[in-house]
Design a protein around this nucleic acid. Structure first.
Lengths: 333, 333
DNA sequence: ACGCGAATGGCAATCGGTTGCCGCGTGTTG
DNA sequence: CAACACGCGGCAACCGATTGCCATTCGCGT
């Protein structure tokens, strides 16, 4: 521990050249004599030299890193997304670091202060901070926003309206006429979008919609939502996300309601849990991996100097995955 | 974008003082006249000055960041662990960054090269690289290893042997005499430990043990394990982790075996999935959050200059959580 | 009135790299 | 043989902050 790493100066001394030559031997191979370069590289290897990217960044203003800020790592939606992001970054020779901001705008700011100067670009996944705060960040470093639209800033989002529309159509086709929406955190941008999409689908699908919540986007939140729903039960519910949907199913079950016998349930995100839970959860899926990859490629384009790729949000399709948690409107028994 | 951030030089000029004074106004408040400091702070705020931690690190050799490297973010075990780590870091005024290494030793090295100089300490969670590579890292920066022991290096691990012992006892008490272990990746340190613990429990619990695998530590891996198990079925199975256990249950179910009627299943990790799956999965739980927090506090102690806190591994207890996936040895029918 | 030390601000070196520019030596060309 | 270009290495400034040391000023004791 604490052993000072070797620097270009160490290498330079050992190889009998100037530090600048060592630097060039690595950064622009053509610029220095092939033999000299070779010798330097040998010496460097021997000494275990590794360039300090931060020191380099001081003058070049470029680390080869990007950061992805997540509202909550424990949320399984992010698993695939991170994968996609990581792969896209690796492909471009960038390292990706992640920071969890625990659903808190304050924490986002703190982390950003520390991390911003160490990276070339930022992906804000489901940021909780204000639009102005986000714009502030975008002024300093190339930034792409995920799962949210912030006027004038590049963003990547899922086609939530269409997803919700599909969900509503599915329920309507099964004969349901009343749908309850189990709302997630108000700070979550997609929540409002999904709710509005459901309301918009109301008239031409002949649906009545209600809304309970907001509840935390967790299994327990779903259990609480079930209790709230029970005061005015409907034959169908759409939850903010899969975890809430699963919690709702547990809660409903505990109250003696059967799924989908008494109530049909639809979630959002198609997380792994949606598949393993019983009954299998019908849910609106989004290409999370693609989402992450696109976002990263998008920032990297900016980092690479793209002046203004269109700032229209890039919207990715979503689709309904039908499983066993939805069924026909219960026949009067 | 691309707007150069303001530096102490900008602030110094605007406030009519020397850069060094600006620096001191922030880093050692007593050292500079109260009024001057106040003025500087005002000017700085007005200009939106934020210190560049990397530049600072050049001379102080201390960013206020630590890194946690994970083998796989998609693995839900890490969710809680990250939480604990993040909280412990925040408590100490450190920011935590995460890197996913996709279960690859090579990727670990690459990421470390980039990230190492930007942080004060490292937590390696379930590293896949060789012991020597790990020691190499530890020579450069304070390092704590999680879920693995590397001779001479501080580490935090779960009491896997005891956990497995409890699982075996539980099965033995239910009358099972043959247990199959569904092995996870060989590069995963706990895999060997768990398997050995099961073998060790054999004789005095009167068990016969078998082993199938290795399989990937995923639901699909579990499905494959079920196929392998089916060639020599046993009445009880212990899986490398919950995902494998869940996959096994699906696979077994698909083959017409009932859980726990025909086969009892135990997982490891007590992830959220263990609770929501049907039947509820009996599993060996570890205090993941605590694990993460301890690891971080441990590195921070080293960062703070502790010369050699004992390098004995810190071992945290594990316990068996009984749910519905285990039952009595099937009566001959 | 003189001397001394505390308070306070500035100068300049340093951290580890990068890069513009200079200068030397060699090879090519007229 | 002179002129010129080019290849290649070194010097030194710079990125943004920190810090040891020095200089100035002021207050105070004697």
């Amino acid at each position: 521990m604490a052993e000072r790493p070797t620097t270009i100066y160490d290498v330079a001394r050992a190889a009998g050249v100037a530090p600048s030559t060592v630097s060039r031997a690595f950064s622009r191979p053509g610029r220095v004599n092939a033999e000299t370069a070779e010798r330097i590289r040998e010496v460097a290897a021997e000494l275990g030299y590794r360039a300090n990217p931060q020191a380099r960044a001081l003058s070049t203003r470029s680390t080869s890193m990007i950061a992805v800020l997540l509202a909550d790592i424990a949320n399984p939606v992010f698993a695939e997304l991170v994968r996609g992001a990581e792969e896209a970054a690796a492909e471009a020779g960038y390292a990706m670091v992640l920071a969890d901001t625990r659903e808190s705008a304050g924490r986002e700011r703190e982390v950003l202060d520390k991390i911003l100067p160490t990276v070339d670009g930022i992906v804000l996944a489901s940021p909780r901070m204000s639009d102005t705060a986000v714009r502030q960040v975008a002024k300093v470093k190339p930034t792409v926003v995920l799962n949210r639209e912030v006027g004038g800033l590049p963003s990547v989002v899922v086609d939530n309206p269409r997803g919700m529309r599909r969900a509503a159509e599915h329920l309507a086709a099964l004969g349901h006429t009343q749908v309850t929406y189990l709302a997630g955190p108000e700070a979550a941008w997609p929540d409002g979008v999904r709710w509005r999409a459901l309301r918009d689908a109301r008239t031409d699908l002949g649906l009545t919609v209600r809304r309970v919540g907001p509840v935390p986007p967790t299994v327990n939140g779903g259990v609480r939502a079930a209790a709230a729903w029970a005061t005015h039960p409907t034959s169908a519910v759409v939850a903010y996300n899969d975890m809430v949907a699963i919690g709702f199913m547990r809660g409903a079950l505990a109250m003696g309601r059967r799924v989908p016998g008494d109530v049909s349930v639809i979630g959002f995100d198609n997380t792994q849990s949606a598949e393993i839970v019983t009954p299998g959860l019908t849910t609106v899926a989004a290409p999370q991996r693609e989402l992450g990859a696109r976002a990263v490629r998008h920032v990297l384009a900016f980092v690479g100097g793209a002046r203004s790729t269109s700032t229209d949000p890039l919207v990715l399709p979503s689709k309904l995955v039908e499983r066993a948690s939805t069924g026909p409107y219960p026949a009067p028994s």
